[in-house]
């Protein structure tokens, strides 16, 4: 939701990034204020996940230009774990499996690390168990997932739900959800988006990467951006997503080229 006096949370200017010497992001501009929901759409390979990972600080990507301010300070100066502790959260498009590490242990360590950072109380295993079970109820997740390895053998949809569980635990300032809807069945989509909506507030912001309108039916975006070949080539309101759903991406490209050439 757009609030009148809200502060700028994230300010991306002219961001360029390469991987293995190949330039993927070619000058991204994006301003996100607290309280807002942004949707990023665009063709496969246009750089949406790359943008998400660059913001989170994945070191396979080299930032070659531009700047990123988060709550007014330089995000690019921070190590990935420091960005997380500052409140940047990424729900991965492909959450990785970490066999042998109990989900409950992992979640608790992540939670307590953040609590320590905020100067708040850490929870012991028993207290945490109660706390996390409440959050799991919200997402209608079976508590058995606590005892399994992190994402180990989880189905595609279960992994996505586990990502949002982490979002619910960590209560980030900025949540970037990379195709959280893909792999979720119809009921799961409703449950997960309900969870996300409950977490949305005037103090945080959500950036959704998605290909489909169906997710935006549940989480209403304030802005929709279209990415193509490493740039945001169009920004509009929620109706843009409906347009895209009907007409595809080609016309946006045509429009963009015309604008550039003019």
């Amino acid at each position: 939701m757009i609030y009148h006096d809200s502060k700028v949370l994230l300010e991306v200017r002219g961001l360029r990034a390469t991987v293995n010497g190949i330039e993927i992001l070619k000058g991204i501009d994006l301003t996100v204020r607290s309280g807002e929901v942004h949707a990023i759409m665009g063709t496969n390979g246009s750089g949406k996940s790359t943008l998400a990972k660059v913001l989170a600080g994945h070191d396979a990507y080299e930032v070659t230009g531009g700047s990123v301010l988060f709550q007014g300070s330089n995000l690019l100066d921070l190590a990935p774990e420091e960005r997380a502790r500052a409140g940047v959260f990424l729900a991965f498009q492909y959450p990785i499996e970490i066999p042998g590490v109990a989900n409950s242990h992992f979640l608790r360590l992540a939670y307590n690390t953040l609590q320590a950072q905020r100067g708040e109380e850490e929870l012991d295993p028993l207290e945490f168990e109660d706390f996390v079970r409440e959050k799991m109820k919200l997402l209608e997740m079976n508590p058995d997932f606590l005892d399994r390895g992190v994402n180990e053998g989880f189905s595609g949809g279960e992994k996505k739900r586990n990502e949002i569980l982490q979002m619910a635990l960590l209560e980030p300032r900025l949540a970037i959800l990379d195709e959280t809807d893909s792999g979720l069945d119809i009921d799961a989509l409703r449950i997960v988006t309900k969870g996300v909506n409950q977490l949305a507030s005037q103090d945080n912001a959500i950036v959704l990467v998605t290909h489909y309108q169906r997710m935006l039916n549940y989480i209403e975006p304030d802005f929709v951006h279209v990415m193509r070949a490493g740039r945001i080539i169009k920004t509009g309101g929620k109706e843009l997503a409906l347009d895209l759903e009907m007409r595809g991406y080609d016309w946006v490209g045509v429009e963009h080229r015309a604008a550039v050439e003019a």
């Binding site: 990972k53 989170a56 600080g57 994945h58 070191d59 396979a60 190590a79 990935p80 774990e81 997380a84 502790r85 959260f89 990424l90 991965f92 959450p95 990785i96 970490i98 066999p99 042998g100 590490v101 109990a102 242990h105 992992f106 360590l109 992540a110 690390t113 953040l114 950072q117 390895g149 982490q166 960590l170």
Partner: peptide
Amino acid sequence: IGEDQLFYFAQRGIGNEEAVSMIINGF
């Protein structure tokens, strides 16, 4: 122990050393 596993931990606020020790202890 891959870069992406460590990045996953880091993205949740957990530094490399702690991540490795957690993975190894699990192993």
